[in-house]
Design a protein around this nucleic acid. Structure first.
Length: 872
RNA sequence: GCGGGCGUGGUGGAAUUGGUAGACACAAGGGACUUAAAAUCCCUCGGCUUUGGCCUUGCGGGUUCGAUUCCCGCCGCCCGCACCA
């Protein structure tokens, strides 16, 4: 008997068509079954899918298909993060229209994704560049503006004077624009901001409830929000200081060290610095120096602490008669706290570096545990750890935390300039989210500027503000701004001439609510709250770790803002979050150091050593390290080629095997070939099973013998374990279980021929279960096998097999026997056998008696059904 | 510098709550079938070894009857943040 080889090239498109025709993956909100929402991060339509997409969407699809099999009503949509810079770059570099370019890319990538056989509801597809989508974003922007969640303020941007455009930080390379090479200027522009800082505390504390998120992502978000509690503290300038203010406010998290203060330092951007610099050329030169340092020196050395003495003094707030000099220092940030600090060199490394340089006093005021107050001294390392306060008057003897409280109430009770000298304050590193982009290819910000009436939102009845697509890129700057007619409009209030805002929205806005739009993609409003609330939060969100902070944090904020404006009824958009690892590949270099693509190299094994040879020249090539797939290193494999040669199922299976999904995976030819072989192995097993059944057509299947019972136990355990592993996203373990099951079934198929009456039923059950287990991972192969087994309907619609609990338990267990913790033998006993009986049996074993050699055991540890340890 | 994570065979990795370390797979080697190849099937596969065993989860300690797992101290790698007062 010979079974024809399984042909994925024929089977895969066929089943994709069948699923399409049957609308297998179209989801209905009214379906009464329990909803389950699985979502992978939607792709940017860059042109072609890459292996990272293949991994991402495979992982999501397994979850989606598995949850469907578990009887859930699964929402599994797909869309396009379609606004963004590459479209404009294509326009500038190749003269393509951004809209046309984007839509073509979407068509190409959609076709590619379809060949993967994903269980996606394509009727819900959305693209953020279409007015049908972004009009709702504009509408919500207006709602959020009205709700006080949007503000307008000045902010610094990186300005490229040649391209006349704003650059993102990553587009500034060594202080120059990435495209023009021109030195980047800092410009102040008035921009729109979402007031994410209003939610800083909530976004921080709610992280504790996101228990289905990776701890790593939560930690990264905590750090990003950067909460610190401290004291705002006023220092009085000594009388007669020739400046407009009488005091300087600092922020400190270590008010307990106030007795050790030896200087004050202002940021170069502090208003007082600016005031002083106006009459002091040297200071203004110093400030300019600091600004230059901001962009350029990162690559040079670790910026040295530098200061400029202002000539001012402040009164020491707790030491009568003492004064502290005021410096401007390059390491003080205007954006954090008050832009001014007090320096306590003994207990802060930066302050210490600064004090040593300018020969300022270093007075320790926190005594480390066990140190001697008489002899303790600070060298070149500050003492930042906890201890007991000393040298500090009324704070002496307190612990650091107690001293913080004591000093806060001390300063709270005193007044300077008619206000409390100190007040406790919580500070966050998080800053408001600037959403204005001086770009063309984005959602227009629905605002009208009128010279008479000011800045007004576009009335909702006039939405959408449609982005014009008849634009040209022959002039530098924002193409939207250059459009001949678009920006000219009339004021909605006075009816006079007015202009539209030509800034567009950050694309992070687009991706901050698409998951909600998927729940009702055709709705005339941004969401239908009742529908959104039924599906949301997303049960399982899957994507790259690179979005751990911004995208996820913005989405968490935006969901809260949508709640505040009545568009949704929840705070947290993603119940479960999973971050996948990268796809990597070996790198190759030719003899003359050029990167070689995998298809340019062949391999030989000489004396067990694997060597690479450049095919074209026949010269030896160097095998380099395994690295993230990138164009520059040419170590990528085009998913299209893989899908054509091996088929979607083999690629999917390989992706799921071996490497845990959160870790990096190395793409190898051998691996995907192994996956391909495994497909054939399953296909042969199914063929043989069908064949045996056919030959045994007349035989009555009587009862199971031991062999059959043992197989059934293996099968049921596999069903149980694989389900648990998929649920826990441990796909590599699920794969290993399936291999074991397959091995057992293949072995058994050989035995069945001997006693088909007793065993065939068990084999048939096992093979059928196997096909159901692989169905979420290799759906096309599974359908083909399902059909071959003569099962009716689609395996995609079949429910996950139930497990007979009786078959999960063994009535016998093998106990390892240890002697002093080393394994010396084993014993098979009935499960649950009493410890005393186990002990009796173990001690009567010949090998144990021999090893004890007449000595009495000191102790016998028996863990029921687990292990026996004899101690002598 | 701060924060987090990770170190297990030639390789990817598995190991429940502290209970047989190396499941499963890849690679490699040997054999069967074949005119031959592919495909398939079988065997070997951490190290040492006097064949009785001994050693082995980055290194060194500790707790325990028992440690890949818990604790302490090192070493190495990766990621994030980085002058945050």
């Amino acid at each position: 008997m010979s079974v024809e080889r399984y042909n994925p090239r024929e089977a895969e498109p066929r089943w994709q068509q069948v699923w399409d025709d049957a609308k297998s993956f179209v989801t209905n909100t009214d379906d009464p079954r329990e909803p389950y929402y699985v979502l992978e991060m939607f792709p940017y339509p860059s042109g072609r899918i890459h292996m990272g997409h293949v991994r991402n969407y495979t992982l999501g699809d397994v979850v989606a298909r598995f949850q469907r099999a578990r009887g859930k009503n699964v929402l599994h949509p797909m869309g396009w993060d379609a606004f963004g810079l590459p479209a404009e770059n294509a326009a500038m570099e190749r003269g393509l229209n951004p809209g046309t370019w984007t839509r073509q890319n979407i068509a190409t990538m959609k076709a590619q994704l379809k060949t993967m056989g994903l269980s996606i509801d394509w009727t819900r597809e959305i693209a953020t560049c279409e007015p049908q989508y972004y009009q709702h974003q504009q509408s919500m922007f207006i709602d959020m503006l009205a709700a006080g969640l949007v503000t307008r303020k000045k902010s610094k941007v990186n300005w490229d004077p040649v391209d006349m455009t704003v650059l993102a930080n990553e587009q500034v390379i060594d202080g120059r624009g990435w495209r023009s090479g021109a030195p980047v200027e800092q410009r102040e522009l008035t921009q729109w901001f979402f007031k994410i800082t209003d939610y800083a505390e909530d976004l921080l504390t709610a992280l504790d409830g996101l228990t289905d998120w990776p701890e790593k992502v939560r930690t990264m978000q905590r750090n990003w929000i950067g909460k610190s509690e401290g004291l705002r503290l006023l220092f009085e300038l000594v009388p007669g200081s020739d400046v407009s203010q009488q005091s300087i406010e600092v922020f400190t998290t270590r008010p307990d060290t106030i007795f050790g203060a030896s200087f004050l330092a202002l940021s170069p951007d502090h208003p007082l610095t600016t005031e002083l610099a106006a009459g002091n050329a040297d200071l203004s030169e110093f400030v300019a120096d600091c600004h230059r340092q901001g962009t350029a020196t990162e690559t040079l050395e670790k910026a040295e602490k530098k200061g400029f003495y202002t000539g001012l003094y402040v009164k020491h707030p707790v030491i009568e008669g003492a004064t502290l000099p005021v410096y401007v220092a390059n390491f003080v940030l205007m954006e954090y706290g008050t832009g001014a600090i007090f320096g306590c060199p003994a207990h802060d490394q930066r302050d210490l570096d600064f004090a040593r340089k300018y020969e300022l006093a270093v007075t320790p005021v926190v005594l480390p545990p066990g140190a001697d107050a008489e002899t303790f001294a600070i060298g070149i390392e500050a003492a930042v750890d906890a201890g007991t306060i000393y040298n500090s008057g009324f704070l002496d003897g307190l612990a650091v935390e107690e001293a913080k409280k004591a000093i806060a109430s001390h300063f709270g009770a005193r007044t300077v300039d008619g206000q409390p000298q100190g007040r406790v304050e919580v500070n966050y590193r998080l800053r408001d989210w600037g959403l204005s982009r001086q770009r063309y290819w984005g959602a227009p910000i629905p605002i009208i500027h009128c010279e008479v009436c000011g800045t007004l939102p576009v009335p909702k009845k006039d939405l959408p503000v449609v982005l014009p697509e008849d634009v040209s890129f022959d002039k530098p700057g924002n193409a939207l701004d250059h459009h001949p007619t678009w920006k000219h409009t009339t004021c909605p209030q006075c009816g006079g001439a007015a202009t539209r805002e030509t800034d567009t929205m950050d694309t992070f806005v687009d991706s901050s609510w698409y998951f909600a739009r998927f729940t009702a993609p055709e709705a005339p409003t941004p969401t239908i709250p009742a529908v959104a609330n039924r599906w949301m939060p997303v049960d399982q969100y899957i994507g790259g770790i690179e979005h751990a902070i911004l995208h996820l944090l913005y989405s968490r904020f935006f969901t809260r803002a949508m709640k505040a404006t009545g568009h949704i009824g929840l705070d947290e958009p993603f119940k479960g979050m999973f971050t996948q690892g990268m796809v990597t590949h070996e790198t190759y270099k030719s003899a003359d150091g050029q990167w070689l693509a995998p298809e340019d190299v062949r391999f030989e094994t000489i004396e067990g050593e694997r060597r690479a040879i450049e095919i074209q020249s026949g010269r030896p090539a160097r095998i380099g390290p395994v690295e993230k797939i990138s164009k520059s290193k040419r170590n990528g494999t085009d998913p299209d080629d893989i899908l054509k040669v091996y088929g979607a199922d083999a690629a999917r299976w390989f992706i799921l095997s071996d490497s845990p999904p959160e870790r990096d995976i190395e793409w190898t030819e051998a691996g995907v070939e192994g996956a391909s072989r495994f497909q054939q192995r399953i296909w042969r097993l199914v063929g043989e099973t069908v064949e045996i059944a056919k030959q045994s057509a007349g035989i009555v299947r009587v009862s199971d013998d031991d062999e059959a019972l043992s197989l059934r136990k293996t099968v049921h355990r596999a069903v149980h374990n694989v389900g648990g592993d998929i649920e826990g996203l441990r796909f590599n373990r699920a794969v290993a279980q399936i291999y074991e099951l397959t091995n057992a079934l293949v072995r058994s198929a050989g035995l069945v021929a001997v006693a088909p009456a007793a065993r065939l039923a068990a084999l048939e059950e096992g093979v059928e279960r196997l096909i159901q287990l692989i169905a979420p991972m290799m759906p096309h192969l599974a359908e083909t096998c399902w059909e071959a087994l003569g099962k009716s309907g689609l395996v995609a619609d079949a429910l996950w097999p139930s497990v007979n609990p009786a078959l999960l338990v063994d009535d016998e267990v093998t106990l390892p026997i240890q002697l002093n913790g080393k394994r010396r033998g084993e014993i098979v006993v009935p499960k649950g056998l009493a410890a005393a009986e186990v002990e009796k049996r173990v001690l009567s074993l010949d090998e144990i008696v021999r090893m004890l050699d007449g000595k009495a055991p000191k102790k016998i540890v028996i863990v029921p059904d687990r292990i026996v340890n004899v101690v002598v």
